[in-house]
Amino acid sequence: MERLRQTPSQTVGPFFAYSLTAQQYGYPYDSIVHHALLGPATPGQHIYITGRVLDGQGAPVPDAVVELWQADAQGQYRTAPINPREDDGRDFTGFGRVGTGTQAGAVFRFETIKPGAVGPGQAPHINVTLFMRGSLHGLRTRLYFEDEAAANAHDELLSAVPPERRATLLARCVAGGGLPGYHLDIHLQGAEETVFFTL
């Protein structure tokens, strides 16, 4: 079998918003992925997730785009096609996207549900991908929940992370906002550098 060479990755640059997150930024184009991964009637514990992306000097990055992809409350990933103009008022998509350029402090905020465990050896988690100016690749990581300590202790992927770095993947519980909330700061560099993945 002949193997083809991959297309190299390039930076998303600073000007993605009018295509990738147009509605959030107020550009005259529609969006097919949003900060809400769910509808009002989606089963499960409704939560919000906030966070920041911090550069090597600890400064919040105001031009990143963050994507979440997660299972539903039963631990199932959506396999049915997402049809935003038909079903998104009701259905859980599991897929969200937010830019860090519209909220004070370059905070991203998602509304979703707390995912169920996908299978044995997996604690509830959310797949996170970041793109930004200054990053020549998408950066992949995961968000785990600090209030799932028992499940986290037996998670295969967390167990593969050096113990002293596991906390970089744990979102902490935050009060306020009307829903249970979790917050995760993603550190690109420094003592608390987030664990990023390679495939």
């Binding site: 295969e156 593969a160 664990v195 390679t198």
Partner: peptide, 19 residues
């Protein structure tokens, strides 16, 4: 590409292909 200096990971990435 100067913006990579403060925005690129400095530690080895965790291989997760199998997981």
């Amino acid at each position: 590409y100067k913006s990579t200096i403060l925005r690129s990971p400095t530690r080895p990435l965790l291989p997760v292909r199998e997981l």
